[in-house]
């Protein structure tokens, strides 16, 4: 872990200290250390297989790290903490699933409780409020399965907001969206962070859609992480040290590409050839 900036603060929403995660003999995360403050928009960037999902699981309390500590709002993480709002990557629903947008969102309020939901005015008001916050009132009564990817993503964000979290975790929210919807989602999340003072940790494998809005970047590669502003972290020597081999940062037309060896690693670190034999005719 390389600490490029360390703003010591007691108001941290999320702090990770010296986190190590090991799956038997394989070190998946090592010496991860960073903190996020209220209202901060942080991008968790890294190629596939870098340990982003593992890190999310640690913060959600689904996985206990082998070493180190993780605290949310000053308290150790626990499974199902209402202070942490989680937005999954996407939902898989059939077009004719009998579930309206507001039903999906309402599950964020009391989906973990037993019994069937009873209609109540306060419940409805709370749901309407978050639907308004993500600009989803127009399609509140539409079937979820028939909404676009961007609209579904907004609902998932609304759902995560219902428990009034201090930290919002978004797992690859942009990976299945077209450029325009991705841009809308980023703008929405950024305004939520600013207006409501909620800290945001957004996971992505491509940093470019987030360049204008990120306060900080946590770059994860090969189980190592660096944190700081984009300019501080996305540099040849910093990333080369993370990856463990020489990579080069190229800036073209306001976009950043990370290139290492023959592969563009910012989107894909994996050596695809390793799996090509299983593809048969897929890659001819």
């Amino acid at each position: 872990m390389m600490e490029i900036t360390q703003r010591g603060s007691h108001g941290d929403v999320l702090t990770l200290k010296d986190v190590h995660v090991q799956f038997h003999n394989r070190l998946v995360l090592q010496h991860i250390e960073f903190a996020i403050q209220p209202g901060e928009f942080v991008g968790l960037i890294g190629p596939n297989g870098a340990g982003k999902t593992t890190l999310l699981k640690v913060i959600l309390g689904l996985l206990t790290p082998n070493r180190g500590s993780v605290t949310v709002d000053g308290l150790p993480v626990k499974h199902g903490n209402p202070l942490v709002g989680y937005v999954p990557q996407k939902i898989h629903l059939e077009p004719d699933t009998p579930l309206r947008a507001r039903d999906l969102v309402a599950l964020g309020l009391d989906g973990h409780r037993w019994g069937i939901p009873l209609p109540s005015r306060s419940r409805r008001e709370k749901v309407d409020e978050v639907l308004r916050a993500v600009d989803a009132l127009d399609f509140a009564d539409a079937p979820v399965g028939r909404l676009s990817g961007g609209e579904q993503q907004r609902l998932l964000i609304a759902q995560a907001l219902l428990t009034q979290p201090k930290l919002l975790l978004l797992d690859e929210p942009l990976s299945n969206l077209d450029i325009r919807s991705a841009h809308e989602v980023v703008r929405l999340v950024s305004s939520i962070a600013q207006n409501q003072g909620i800290a945001v940790l957004l996971v992505a494998h491509d940093m470019n859609p987030l360049l204008g809005v990120m306060d900080k970047i946590v770059y994860l590669a090969a189980g190592n992480a660096a944190i700081g502003t984009v300019d501080e972290v996305v540099q040849n020597e910093v990333l080369s040290r993370l990856y463990g081999y020489d990579v080069e940062v190229i800036r073209v037309r306001g976009r950043i590409l990370v290139v290492g060896g023959n592969n563009e690693v910012s989107t894909d670190l994996l050596q695809p050839t390793q799996h090509l034999d299983s593809m048969g005719g897929a890659t001819d």
Binding site: L60, G80, Y86, P88, G115
Partner: peptide, 23 residues
């Protein structure tokens, strides 16, 4: 089924989200 309704619904629609919620 009445008791399980909401968690089962959440788990069916978005299992990762349900897990994060402590289900």
């Amino acid at each position: 089924l009445v008791i399980l309704y909401r968690p089962l619904m959440l788990a069916s629609v978005m299992s990762e989200g349900a897990e994060a919620r402590g289900i």
